[in-house]
């Protein structure tokens, strides 16, 4: 099990397009992937769940990956968040 702390650095936070990219990235791994914010814990492979986190710019998220490729999954998602989901700002 891998656990990491993430901070959202893109202007719009986890809006629809960003959430969609995050879910697609998570779905590419075999491991179970979870995201938690303010006590709400959701499956990162479910788009509705991720959107319900309603996480704006600057929010702190906890990422949890569990499975054979947990380390790679955590790395990929962390990189995506750091890269502002491929957006300009």
């Amino acid at each position: 099990m891998t656990r990491r702390s993430l901070q959202l650095v893109n202007r719009l936070g986890l809006h629809a397009r960003a959430a969609s990219r995050l879910v697609r990235t998570a779905a590419g791994f075999e491991s179970a992937v979870w995201l938690e914010r303010d006590g709400r814990r959701v499956n990162a492979k479910s788009i509705m769940g991720v959107l319900m986190l309603a996480a704006p710019l600057g929010s702190e998220l906890t990422l949890e990956c569990d499975g054979p490729d947990a380390e790679e999954a955590a790395e990929a998602i962390e990189a995506l968040v750091r890269d502002r989901f491929g957006e300009d700002q």
């Binding site: 719009l12 809006h15 319900m52 309603a54």
Partner: peptide, 11 residues
């Protein structure tokens, strides 16, 4: 749905 989500996000 996205409109509602937008309101939830406050932006």
């Amino acid at each position: 749905f996205l409109e509602r989500h937008g309101r939830l996000m406050g932006h």
